[in-house]
Nucleic acid binder design. Structure first.
Length: 194
DNA sequence: CTTAGGATCGCCT
DNA sequence: GGCGATCCTAAGC
């Protein structure tokens, strides 16, 4: 597939942006790697934090696009999203897995692990490896500490059902880099590619 | 390989 | 009081 040029328009639908992000490099304070797994969420989406309307936790999801929405998962993990659509809409893309490339030792220390494969294989692990906290909530993605870099080569993107949700399993809004060994989980065989 | 339980917080009914 | 856009560890097959 072909990537949208950077900087692309975060006002696009979250399902499109989620697939565009696969293969791009994300750095936070110079640490990170290649995005290999994302999930899209939208307002009319029972699995989305925005489904029930604005509240203090999800406020930045209803803010301007192109910013971070950071939430606390299960009271323990920090998870990073990119806000999509127009301000007030309530859409976003969850960054679920990254192929570690830059700052490997920093990420190993933060995670307390050596195994590269497990450093960023899941949204909570990404948060820990990139030291995401509430302080990042609402920050612009086109400025430090964030950096989003274009892919060097075209990538093959696969899609499938989202993980860890009970409602909204019907839409294939999980996207991944085909064949990557850094996914949080493998994609079901024979899934759609683009 | 799969399954089960605990940690721990914010918003919901 | 219940339930998550999760992860880790331990135990079972």
């Amino acid at each position: 597939m072909r990537h949208a040029p950077l900087p692309f328009d975060f006002a696009a639908p979250s399902s499109e942006i989620a697939s565009w992000l696969i293969g791009l490099t994300l750095l936070v304070d110079g640490v990170g790697g290649r995005i290999v797994e994302t999930e899209a969420y939208d307002r009319e989406d029972p699995a989305s934090h925005s489904f029930a309307g604005p509240n203090p936790r999800n406020a930045s999801m209803f803010g301007p696009p192109g910013r971070a929405y950071v939430y606390r998962s299960y009271g323990i993990h920090w998870c990073l999203n990119f806000v999509c659509r127009e301000a007030g809409h309530g859409a976003g893309v969850l960054i679920r897995a990254i192929e570690p490339k830059v700052g490997l030792e920093t990420m190993r220390e933060r995670r307390g692990l050596r195994d590269e494969r497990l450093l960023c294989a899941g949204p909570g692990r990404v948060g820990q490896a990139l030291a995401i906290t509430r302080a990042h909530d609402g920050l612009r993605l086109d400025r430090p500490p964030f950096r989003l870099l274009p892919a060097k080569e075209p990538v093959e993107v696969v899609a499938g059902p989202r993980i860890g949700i009970s409602k909204g399993r019907d839409v294939p809004w999980r996207f991944g880099l085909r064949g990557s060994r850094f996914l949080s989980r493998p994609f079901p065989r024979g899934e759609i590619s683009s």
